[in-house]
Write a protein that binds this DNA or RNA. Structure first.
Lengths: 202, 202
DNA sequence: GGACTGACAGATATTGAAATCTGTCAGTCC
DNA sequence: GGACTGACAGATTTCAATATCTGTCAGTCC
């Protein structure tokens, strides 16, 4: 016995196994083998295989949160801040998709298994959008009756650029143009938007 | 021999077989059996099974075109016309999904097999959006540098409400609110939108 | 005594032989 | 003679036997 088996070591090994075999083939026995222990030991730290996978998923999503949280440039206007935030998110997703399709697919499968985790993740990201919009409302750059609802609308309107179901479209050479067009439309909308009905022009 | 076998009869029988057995189980032999002919006869009208399925898919999509084309109310403002058009499309999709999930899934599978057909279908629908936007530009209700690009942006921004990948979200009780919020945001954006960069406020 | 093992029952996945399907075509039937 | 059949080869799918995996737990080892 060299060192005590930690949850952290198990998570790292699980990531490695998932990376190597993919989500369909990765078994708890494989993880145990990679760690040189019996698979019974893994169950001492995670109650079920599902719980283990969920922990890995949560880890990955938390890493995205942190990356997106960092580097909010407060000098930018709300429009530019929003544009920049959406662009960074898109770049991150697109990059991870084109760089390593296998891993991206694995990631997508795991996310699909853990709807509770993804729900928290989405709420968190939409919360970041809401924060930017609120800043814009405070400076009278944006107009809206309901910041949270509008943040959700911005998120929904840009789904094509972050929802994994649309990943195959991200390879299209004109995707950046499409992104710019949608973001411009959305940002223009934020300058004069009332949710229930958009009547009363200037 | 009662009557001559027509392509039309084969298509109808294929739809019926697809409806009954689903896309995975429906075979050319089943179609022939339903028609009371040998499967060799079916191949006299359609070169391959794929061609037969494509013809069925095209038929379904054409029916959607026609329905959407009808009932453009010219009395409406461009905003209301766009809102109405998007609502009708959403209602149609959502209804066909909730009414008969089996058939919707079948439909989605077939569409997935025929990317060329779907491409034509999407161009057609985005063309209808472009027509509405152009009308809005003519009456100075909307502002844009590039009608076609903007039409595509409107389409992209509303993907959540028509792309089959998001069908499961259509069951959410607040989905209509989400739809209203996105459409309001988009319509507000159309009133003052310039694609490459949205600077130069009033 | 607490971390770990390994054998076990039931659930799930793999495999390969048998059945079915796709697409062809020579031949039958009005 | 043109619409249709039915038997056929090769490709694909099904099914049941076999192997592997998940989750448990009594027992081993420091």
């Amino acid at each position: 016995m060299a060192e005590a088996l930690t949850s952290e070591a198990i998570l790292a090994a699980t990531e490695e196994v998932l990376r190597r075999y993919g989500p369909a083939k990765a078994t708890v026995v494989d993880v145990a083998k990679a760690l040189g222990v019996s698979h019974g030991s893994v169950y001492r730290h995670f109650a079920t295989k599902a719980a283990l996978r969920e922990a890995v998923t949560r880890r990955w999503l938390d890493a995205i949160h942190e990356e997106m949280e960092r580097e909010f440039d407060p000098a930018l206007s709300a429009s530019d801040m929003l544009r920049d935030w959406l662009q960074r998110l898109f770049d991150k997703k697109r990059l991870s998709h084109t760089e390593d399709v296998e891993l991206f697919t694995t990631f997508r499968t795991l996310v699909g298994e853990n709807s509770a985790v993804i729900e928290y993740h989405l709420e968190h990201l939409v919360g970041q959008v809401a924060r930017i919009i609120r800043a814009g409302v405070d400076t009278h750059e944006f107009v809206t009756d309901d910041v949270d609802k509008t943040a959700q609308a911005v998120w929904d309107a840009t789904q094509v650029f972050h929802h994994p179901a649309h990943a195959q479209e991200w390879g299209n050479p004109h995707i950046q143009d499409a992104f710019d067009a949608v973001v411009s439309l959305v940002v223009a909308g934020l300058r004069y938007n009332r949710i229930p009905s958009a009547t009363g022009d200037a």
